[in-house]
C-alpha cells in the first residue's frame, strides 16, 4: 500500500475475517474508504453485509485482520471507543430509547459525545450545551415539534430518522447506515433519501440498502458482497454491467 493511498483513506480494513465456529461470515475483505464518498453495500441476504458493519463498528470480533480509522488502528477497540474516534452507526433493527422522549434520546447522545466522565453533581437540564446540540439535530432530522413525544410511539420512518440523528450527535467522520429505508413507507422514502443525502455531506457513509434504485442513484461507489467476500466494487454503471454481479444476483450464465 503506497503512501498516497493511505493518506487518502479515512476508514481502511485489511484482510478482515469474522468467523462463528467453522462458518466464515466475512473473509478476505480489504477495503479503503475515501473521505467524503457515499458507499452502497449490496448483496443477497446472508452475504455478510451486516457482519462487516459489525466488524467495523466493533460489535463483531475479528478472527483475522485489522481496521484503521483515520490511520489510527481501532482493531479490538470497543464500540464506544470507535464512536469517540469518529465512527457512528444505525442498526437494521431500530435501536432507540423507546420509553424516553425524542429530545431525551438526542440529549443522551449529545451528552455521551460531550463528556467522557458523566457528571453527577448537576441536573442534566443545567447543561445548556447538550440541550442545544439536541435541538440542532432535532431540526436537522426533520423532527421539530416532536421533541416531547415518546420515541417508541413515533412512526417507523421517524424512528429511523431519530436513529440517524443519534448517530449524528457523535459528529462522526464515518457513518454506517444499516438499511435505513427498511420498512419505511413508500410515501416517505423520498424524505428519508433526502436525509441520507444531507448527512452524507462532508462525511463518508457506508450504506446497506436493498432498494436498488436508491442505492444506484445516490452512491458514489458500490460494493457487492457475496458469501462473506467482496465480489466487486466500482461505480454504479460498472457494477450494473459486471457479469459476476449479474450472475450472483440474477443467476445469469456468464
Amino acid at each position: 500500500m503506497n503512501a498516497i493511498a493511505e493518506k487518502n483513506s479515512i476508514l481502511r480494513c485489511e484482510d478482515i475475517e469474522v468467523s462463528y465456529g467453522a462458518f466464515k461470515a466475512v473473509s478476505n475483505v480489504s477495503y479503503d474508504f475515501k473521505p467524503g464518498l457515499l458507499y452502497g453495500l449490496i448483496g443477497p441476504n446472508g452475504a455478510g453485509k451486516t457482519t462487516l458493519m459489525n466488524a467495523l463498528s466493533g460489535r463483531a470480533k475479528l478472527s483475522k485482520g485489522r481496521v484503521f480509522l483515520n490511520d489510527q488502528e481501532i482493531t479490538g477497540k470497543s464500540p464506544h471507543a470507535r464512536t469517540w474516534a469518529g465512527l457512528g452507526r444505525s442498526f437494521q433493527i431500530t435501536q432507540i430509547f423507546a420509553e424516553m422522549t425524542v429530545f431525551e434520546n438526542l440529549r443522551l447522545a449529545a451528552q455521551a459525545h460531550r463528556f467522557r466522565l458523566q457528571p453527577f453533581w448537576r441536573p442534566v437540564g443545567k447543561f445548556k450545551e447538550i440541550a442545544n446540540d439536541a435541538e440542532r439535530v432535532l431540526s436537522e432530522i426533520g423532527l421539530e415539534g416532536f421533541g416531547h413525544v415518546n420515541a417508541g410511539s413515533l412512526s417507523h420512518g421517524d424512528q429511523r430518522a431519530l436513529e440517524i440523528g443519534l448517530a449524528l450527535l457523535s459528529e462522526p467522520k464515518v457513518l454506517l447506515l444499516d438499511e435505513p429505508l427498511a420498512g419505511v413507507g413508500h410515501d416517505v422514502v423520498e424524505t428519508a433519501v433526502e436525509l441520507i443525502r444531507k448527512v452524507s455531506q462532508g462525511r463518508t457513509v457506508l450504506l446497506i440498502e436493498h432498494n436498488m434504485d436508491v442505492v444506484m442513484e445516490i452512491s458514489d461507489e458500490i460494493i457487492v458482497m457475496l458469501a462473506g467476500e467482496v465480489l466487486a466494487s466500482g461505480e454504479a454503471e460498472t457494477i450494473k454491467r459486471d457479469p459476476r454481479v449479474r450472475t450472483a444476483y440474477l443467476g445469469e450464465e456468464e
Binding site: 460489535r59 464500540p79 464506544h80 464512536t83 452507526r89 442498526f91 424516553m100 459525545h113 443519534l166 457523535s170
Partner: peptide, 10 residues
C-alpha cells in the same frame, strides 16, 4: 433502556 444503543452513541 437499550444497552446496544447506549454503547453505540459513545
Amino acid at each position: 433502556s437499550n444497552e446496544v444503543r447506549a454503547e453505540q452513541i459513545g
